[in-house]
Design a protein around this nucleic acid. Structure first.
Length: 234
DNA sequence: GCATTAACCACAG
DNA sequence: CTGTGGTTAATGC
């Protein structure tokens, strides 16, 4: 019987440095429930955290690391729907919508993920209204983001949308103007809905215009104002 | 018509 | 995995 007690002792959710807003409103008892339902796993770049078309058993809290959410479409082509970094929940919509994952989540850098058993998670949703509200808030935010992103993608020309992606990496992901692009050219193309060849060509045009400097995976934005302008003017 | 945008293809580091 | 160049199709003056 020491097992259960040990489990409780080992519970780290309470002291997690990446604790999310929803989890911060849980009671001690509920935190224990969360811990029992959670297993921490580390993923290397390229490894799938959630696999499209697989049985949906848990939702995932990305503790740290950069990941992509991607879906294989009807013509066997992968489209990257979102790139983001922890801390963040992923996979919640699938878990509540059906039994099967409709998209994959893969690590782009080393990623620490907390795999949370769906039953346990659902118990918390049903038990704690404040927790549910916070989860609903984060889900709403990402949904609105997706709407905006979708319209951008359709209306903007490629150069503008690629500029968007650069600004997304500098301002949101890395919060600095020089960074190491976690996507290959092919993935970058999948991210903005184009081919790797087009990415190469546009990137070169931006280098020519002295808007960015590129050294392999290393990218440095040197004229953000102009980049912003390109992003705005379709 | 002519120019621009971007996909597709093939070949080469 | 990337870069390059040629070709092709669609769209817009």
């Amino acid at each position: 019987m020491q097992t259960l007690k040990e489990e409780y002792k080992k519970c780290q959710c309470k002291d997690c440095v990446n604790i999310s807003v929803p989890v911060s409103v849980l009671t001690d008892q509920e935190l224990d429930l969360l811990c029992i339902s959670t297993t921490k796993v580390t993923f290397q770049r390229g490894e799938k955290i959630i696999k499209q078309d697989s049985f949906c058993q848990n939702i995932v809290f990305i503790k740290s690391g950069i990941y992509k959410i991607h879906q294989t479409g009807p013509i066997n082509r992968d489209e990257i729907l979102k790139v983001d970094k922890g801390p963040q929940f992923v996979g919640i919509p699938d878990a509540f919508a059906g039994k099967v994952h409709t998209y994959s989540v893969s690590a782009l850098t080393e990623t620490i993920a907390c795999m949370i058993d769906f039953q346990g998670f659902r118990d918390l949703i049903e038990k704690n209204g404040k927790f549910s509200t916070e989860i609903l808030k984060t889900m709403s935010r990402t949904l609105i983001e997706h709407y905006g992103n979708c319209v951008n993608k359709i209306q903007k020309q490629l150069t503008a949308f690629l500029a968007d992606s650069l600004l997304y990496f500098t301002d949101h992901i890395y919060e600095r103007d020089e960074f190491e692009m976690p996507l290959t050219r092919k993935e970058w193309g999948e991210f903005i809905g184009t081919t790797r060849e087009s990415v190469t060509k546009i990137v070169h045009a931006l280098i020519e215009s002295e808007i960015i400097e590129v050294n392999g995976r290393n990218i440095r934005v040197i004229n953000k104002d102009l980049l912003q302008k390109i992003s705005n003017t379709g």
